[in-house]
């Protein structure tokens, strides 16, 4: 008996079934979600990224930041993410509607970045962190992204340019971020997943009632 067609049919059936169950069925629900209208501000969440932040997402992807950083906050009972202040609530599918590509990450060798735009809104902090993380956090294992910056020695009596990082970053040199670094920082500043959504209320119920930007719960 020729079993080859049986192997083909069996494999095909298994792959078709799992494709339907894990890809098609969820696609019909979470894949068709739309951005939520925030009643108080009239803005949509998540907002699509434009300009520098959009380019920054590609810089994030190209440097492989997702190798060490995740962009997913777990619920309160399941790990210390919310206790660490990485988010006010867990992340859900709606948070990634505007991402291209979605970089949720899988390994943490550094903090989660879902809400880094809220935790660290300062651009200079991010630029210094990228240039030399150990300036800000001694003992950090983050690589130095010196190639995202132009580093020029400062001559006698020459003032550093306006765009340069603070002098303490590299004494005797001016460190000017390249457009990629600026875009990446704009992207990081846009990372925030703190609008309470129906599927992801704030863990403390009273906070939901008091939340200014809470949308009406779905029926």
């Amino acid at each position: 008996m020729n079993q080859t067609p049986l192997i083909f049919l069996g494999s095909f059936a298994a792959m078709a079934a799992s494709f339907w169950g894990l890809v098609v069925a969820p696609q019909n629900t979470i894949g068709r979600q739309q951005a939520t209208l925030i009643q108080d501000t009239g803005a949509y969440y998540p907002a699509s990224r434009t300009g520098s932040a959009e380019a920054g997402a590609q810089v994030y992807r190209a440097q492989g930041c997702a190798e060490c950083h995740t962009q997913q906050v777990r619920p309160k009972g399941q790990g210390g993410d919310i206790d660490r202040g990485w988010g006010r609530r867990r992340t859900v599918a709606e948070d990634y509607l505007a991402d291209q590509p979605v970089q949720i990450g899988a390994l943490r060798l550094g903090p989660d970045l879902s809400n880094i735009g809220r935790r660290q809104p300062d651009a200079t902090y991010h630029l210094q962190n990228l240039y030399n993380s150990r300036l800000l956090k001694p003992g950090s294992l983050m690589p130095r992204y010196t190639y995202l910056f132009d580093v020029r020695p400062l001559g006698e009596g020459v003032k550093p340019s306006e765009a340069a990082l603070p002098a303490a970053t590299e004494p005797g040199f001016e460190v000017i971020p390249k457009p990629e670094a600026i875009a990446l920082v704009a992207y990081l500043q846009s990372l925030a997943a703190d609008v309470p959504l129906f599927s992801a209320p704030f863990p403390i119920a009273k906070t939901n009632a008091a939340a200014v930007v809470a949308p009406a719960p779905k029926q």
Partner: peptide, 13 residues
């Protein structure tokens, strides 16, 4: 690409 986190599902698949 699919919209949103479904991309990650396809990648995990």
């Amino acid at each position: 690409p699919l919209r949103g986190v479904m991309q990650s599902v396809a990648g995990a698949y």
